[in-house]
Design a protein around this nucleic acid. Structure first.
Lengths: 213, 213
DNA sequence: TAGATTGTTAATCGATTAACAATC
DNA sequence: TAGATTGTTAATCGATTAACAATC
């Protein structure tokens, strides 16, 4: 393993896919796989698989391939699956409620520790064992609790104010569902889920297909 | 404009961002912008902006830059914003309901023409002016209606069956919220929104930050 | 042992950035 | 006109793929 090597984002984004396919294989009682067979399953090259994995260590054996359970456990360890960071969700509208339920039903180790909203009709509502708190109390909450990650499911107009709180209170990551880009310092990571953008991209690509015919 | 040039996916995925920033500028009554000023706003290089746009035409003027309204209209035309394809949503659970409401509230031209579910408790329910239909009736619906795109918000175990219907009935694009990869022919485009993967990626990157300190 | 397959180095490919002639 | 800025060609960078020695 190259120790101080920077892992490219392209590689990081493929890790959950490896995790999924290996979990599937294990469930099917397949306990051994070569990079070549895995490449056929995943529709990527065997070269890419071996390159990707070599960023984190040497998990295979010449002439044999990879032990599925062992490799899965290594991927789990790399992704820190069983010991995830905690998060709060800000904005308990359609999307906020849905992802709250989603996370709690998934049991992927992610731990919600608070729900917040601005709307008086929503504040106090119970959801998945939490009461939705007034976003006005968020600064105090952030002071009293270590919050690793924030899921942002709020309208664009409130972004600025919340962004400031995030930076001030040492939040490390943001799952951004709002359709605005966030302006955050480089020590805070952002994963964007921009449904509006995605729909436009899908629409564009569908039109490409239609026009080609 | 290079006419038969294949537009790379990287470029396509940036188009909605251009659209958003230009719309913002227009709303702020800024009617002129150079690639250099736009690059500062968007945190990308001016070179990239000019390269990206040159895939579709010549929209600027030397010594002046770009007319915001004109460029915005061109991007709208490229993305076909005002004349989007229609879609149905399969799986009206947490996520399915949320995106149904989301799409109808966004008014981005996307037109929902049907909602489907397997669950008897959900079938018949009213949502955004639609009644949720039994997924059993989907083959007939697909035969009678031209469905361009499908949003898939169903559990993984039902994927195979629905995938078959999609291929058979000439659907052109899939917005896949399930946490399984779809196996579709190359003339059907897929945009994946894998919340589970995204959370793992965010978690990994947050840990990188934490461990670096 | 012989065949299979890894991990890694080298080659290729594609995307981003830099440079600049053209021209408003 | 002089300065500004485009669109495009060339250079660079980074990611993917190919090749192969090492070895199980």
């Amino acid at each position: 393993m190259k120790n101080n090597k920077v892992i490219s984002l392209a590689v990081i984004r493929r890790l959950p896919r490896y995790y999924r396919y290996l979990k599937d294989l294990l469930e099917k009682d397949i306990n051994r796989i070569s990079s070549s067979d895995l490449s056929a399953l995943m529709n990527i090259t065997a070269s890419q698989i071996r390159q990707d994995l070599s960023n984190f260590g040497s998990f295979g054996q010449q002439g044999y391939g990879y032990n599925v359970e062992y490799l899965l456990n290594e991927i789990k360890r790399i992704l820190n699956i069983d010991n995830s960071n905690n998060l709060i969700i800000i904005g308990i509208g359609n999307i906020g409620s849905a992802i709250t339920k989603y996370i709690n039903n998934q049991k992927n180790g992610m731990k919600i520790i608070g729900l917040f909203d601005k709307n008086k009709d929503v504040i106090g509502k119970g959801l998945e064992g939490f009461f939705v708190q007034d976003v006005e109390t968020l600064p105090l909450f952030l002071k009293k609790n270590k919050v690793d990650m924030v899921a942002l499911t709020i309208p664009s107009k409130n972004i600025k104010e919340i962004t400031r709180l995030i930076v001030e209170h040492d939040v490390k990551g943001v799952w951004n569902f709002s359709s605005h880009d966030l302006d955050l310092p480089p020590n805070i990571v952002v994963e964007n889920v921009n449904l509006s953008d995605d729909l436009m991209i899908l629409n564009f690509r569908v039109n490409q297909i239609i026009n080609k015919v």
